[in-house]
Design a protein around this nucleic acid. Sequence first.
DNA 1: TTTGAAATTGGTAGCGCTGCCAAAATATCT
DNA 2: AGATATTTTGGCAGCGCTACCAATTTCAAA
Lengths: 334, 334
Amino acid sequence: MNLDARHQTMVTLAKVAEAAGVGESTVSRVLRNHGSFSRKTRDRVMEAVERLGYVPNRIAGTLASAGSRLVALVIPSLTNIVFADVLRGASAILEGNQHQAVFSVTEYEPEKEEALVAAMLAWRPTAVMLAGFEHSEGTVKMLRASGCRVVELLDLDGAAQDLAVGFSNRAAGSVSADFLLRRGYRKIGYVGHDLDRDTRAAKRFASFRERLGAAGFPLVDSEIHAGASSVEGGRLALERLLARMPDLDAVYFSNDDMALGGYFHCLARGIQVPERLALFGHNGLDIGRVTPQPLSTIRTPRVATGRVAAELVVTDAPAQVVDLGFELIEGATA
Amino acid sequence: MNLDARHQTMVTLAKVAEAAGVGESTVSRVLRNHGSFSRKTRDRVMEAVERLGYVPNRIAGTLASAGSRLVALVIPSLTNIVFADVLRGASAILEGNQHQAVFSVTEYEPEKEEALVAAMLAWRPTAVMLAGFEHSEGTVKMLRASGCRVVELLDLDGAAQDLAVGFSNRAAGSVSADFLLRRGYRKIGYVGHDLDRDTRAAKRFASFRERLGAAGFPLVDSEIHAGASSVEGGRLALERLLARMPDLDAVYFSNDDMALGGYFHCLARGIQVPERLALFGHNGLDIGRVTPQPLSTIRTPRVATGRVAAELVVTDAPAQVVDLGFELIEGATA
DNA sequence: TTTGAAATTGGTAGCGCTGCCAAAATATCT
DNA sequence: AGATATTTTGGCAGCGCTACCAATTTCAAA
């Protein structure tokens, strides 16, 4: 790009100052509504801003002032509504506080997470928000060195670097197990997705399984769909699981997407839910409330997680762990 | 924040240069792999970078060099998977080309879109991507003045400002009408969501309705769910529509989410699909492929839209309109 | 009026980096 | 060896803005 051409066209603060017949710092103060200035000056400046169509350059502003007011969200997936909800909650708060959310997607790959965190840190964000506690050594080192706030989301079972907001996946897993046991199910299976990557789902599963074992009704069998969680994955995996273990009486799914797939399988095959087979999910997605039978699941505080995380960041709160809990939804599938 | 404290801690390019015993510009060249330098110098610099844990400051870099390599995506909603898919496509390409996606959500509100575009322009992005052609006057003016590339997504029925990528919603609407007519449906209704905001859905509906009228079988009735599109909205709206018009033989939905809600309503009420009532959606979401009966719908090129848009931007392609088309999915609900 | 305090303003030195240019080092050729 | 091309380097002036400070103006009290 031709720099000179750009410089001729670009409206800068200096040009506004000249047009308004005031000093640069005055324009800066007026625009940021910071410091003092007379009403008359303000009007003159605003008139010039309007007339020239001036748009402040935050790049320059940030460089000069240290605070970028950018918050980086590094999330595993956008396909998963869970993270879209977190983003929604966070954006809402950030926008109301002159901050900007910047996000990128790791596809659940730690190496990608590391690369993205590096890229984000180059923008000197106020904070970086990540899913969960499991990060590569390099990621942790960079974050620590950067000095910016770190918020780990949607997990509490582990050691937080700085701030953490969410709920305990282990608790969710055992509550789910207790519920199924209380309802009298005894031959329980599990349908999940790639657990190496989704460590939060892995924690739920581990805890679920432990609880069943402790109650004397150990998990009968499990089927892991290779790949990311999806409705289709849930359907296929349940089909495979039932082929092996036709007399299961309940299945716990790694999340609602997978559970929905399982439910569709049952509908398609005429398997009576929950009489013949009970289904239990995790997340409490809206769609699960509207299926012919509402899904039995656990509602997780997704939007609230984003919101609270953002609030902690904008208020520069001290390091802490915030447990937002979750809610059992009895539904009609278990 | 205390500036001095920060300055003491921050590793800057100058410190790396000093540690490596070379000049600043040499470090800059090595890090950007631009210009020439000896192998030995490169190693010395990289060693220092490694040792000090230096992370380049892109804020400063951008200010000095003019190109931010940021691409702003201003989308209506994250709840709607459509936009998540666009983002996914765009991110993938941008990341592979040293660009960063920055996004924010308008909630379908034009005033919010305008505010967000202003906020994004402050970061001097390479391009701004928006949904559709309908923007406030202020938004258009700002974009024009900014001189950055503009990409309008998922719509072709209107006048593009610069680049446009997507498909024709009007065409999708008439193809949908033709399909239902070809199948022999004659008493057709419509279930949609807030059309003032989702202008693309409005275009589909308008075209759908025109086509039915032209064929001599005008739309019998329609029911608009107040609020954003959702599965629940579809279910409730279909229920209301059928209460008024019990003898409809087919319903066209504003999108798959709404259609899914309608489908669930039919399942719950035992309404035979498609014999008693046919359902037709729009978007071709994955979940619609896995329901007991796959949804009849139109698959839209969402990920490709994001991908192509990003490619056009990174290659600095000339202004143009790219039609990615769509695909009819016959499914089993119509 | 005088005086001091308070409110308002402008000048200017950076923020950390890149682009340009000239200088230095190295390689290649008579 | 000397001269010329080539590669490699460092210095430094900005990029557009904000923080800081000093200068100026305004206001109120004495």
